[in-house]
Nucleic acid binder design. Structure first.
Length: 105
DNA sequence: CAACTGACGATAG
DNA sequence: CCTATCGCCAGTT
């Protein structure tokens, strides 16, 4: 359960800087498995709180929060807005401005 | 080992 | 923009 894809995913998420967001596909890709986006989601549920991961910075490829309304959606949105991330009228995040990239390291 | 599950992604219509 | 499907992966049951 260590030194695996899962560990790298968690490590990557920890490296997402404040004020930036990353998509599941990105995390999966940079962790070695471009198609394990689902696994990323599973990991978040599995240990986001336990490992104190900035889970709120993980969104889907559409630039939107995946959580259902009244199921954490508003909570996540508030956390992101507190970090300076903005949402447009469609509740989408502008990748051009807030998407985290490997070059930001 | 088989089936199921999950905050997904890409593609097709 | 929407729904429907399939694919992919790891952890559970």
């Amino acid at each position: 359960m260590n030194d695996s894809f899962s560990e790298r995913v968690k490590d990557f998420i920890k490296k997402i800087p404040k004020g930036k967001v990353a998509t599941y596909g990105q995390i999966a890709t940079y962790s070695g498995n471009p198609r394990a986006s689902r696994q990323v989601a599973w990991i978040l549920h599995s240990s986001s709180n336990k490992d104190n991961l900035p889970w709120q910075r993980v969104i889907n490829s559409k630039g939107k929060i995946s959580l259902p309304h009244m199921g954490g959606y508003e909570h996540q949105k508030e956390l992101l807005e507190k970090e300076g991330i903005e949402f447009d009228e469609n509740d989408k995040i502008d990748f051009k401005r807030f998407l985290f990239s490997i070059n930001d390291f």
